[in-house]
Simulated scan of single mutants.
Amino acid sequence: MCLGIPGEVIEVLDDKPDLAKVDVSGVRRNINIGLLGEDRPVPGEWILIHVGFALSKIDEQEAQDALAFLEGIGQAYADEIEALKESRIE
């Protein structure tokens, strides 16, 4: 499964215009924004990221909804693994 992760643009790097510093759930990384072409994001805007590349700009509500969904999947997956660890098939 491929996931797009929302991130908030912190700054576009002056010396590397295809890169932006982005905050993804508290982790800051440089992300390639070159695929967005002329629709470059500015600080404060949200982007959808996959394997280090911005795929599209999204609004803040869509970003928050996606983050909540992903957090929900993460917890559901963790709960399922714990249940599996505790189960015994004999």
Rank of each mutant, 00 (worst) to 15 (best):
R88A: 14
L84T: 02
P6E: 05
I5G: 12
M1G: 15
A54S: 13
P43I: 08
G7T: 10
G74Q: 11
L3I: 09
E38P: 06
G34S: 15
P6V: 05
P41N: 08
V22C: 04
C2W: 15
D59Y: 13
D18P: 09
A20Y: 09
R88C: 07
Q75I: 12
V51H: 00
D18Q: 13
H50G: 05
I47G: 01
Q64H: 07
E71G: 05
I10T: 04
I47H: 02
E86T: 06
H50P: 03
S25R: 14
D15H: 12
G74H: 13
R28Q: 13
E80Y: 10
V51W: 00
P6M: 10
Q75M: 15
I89L: 08
A66N: 03
K85H: 15
R29D: 10
V51L: 12
I49G: 03
A66D: 13
Q64E: 15
V27N: 04
K85F: 13
Q61H: 08
P41H: 03
E86A: 12
G72D: 05
A20W: 11
R88T: 11
I58G: 05
L70D: 05
E80W: 14
I47E: 07
D79W: 01
G37C: 06
C2V: 15
D15M: 13
G52Y: 01
K16W: 00
D14L: 03
E45P: 03
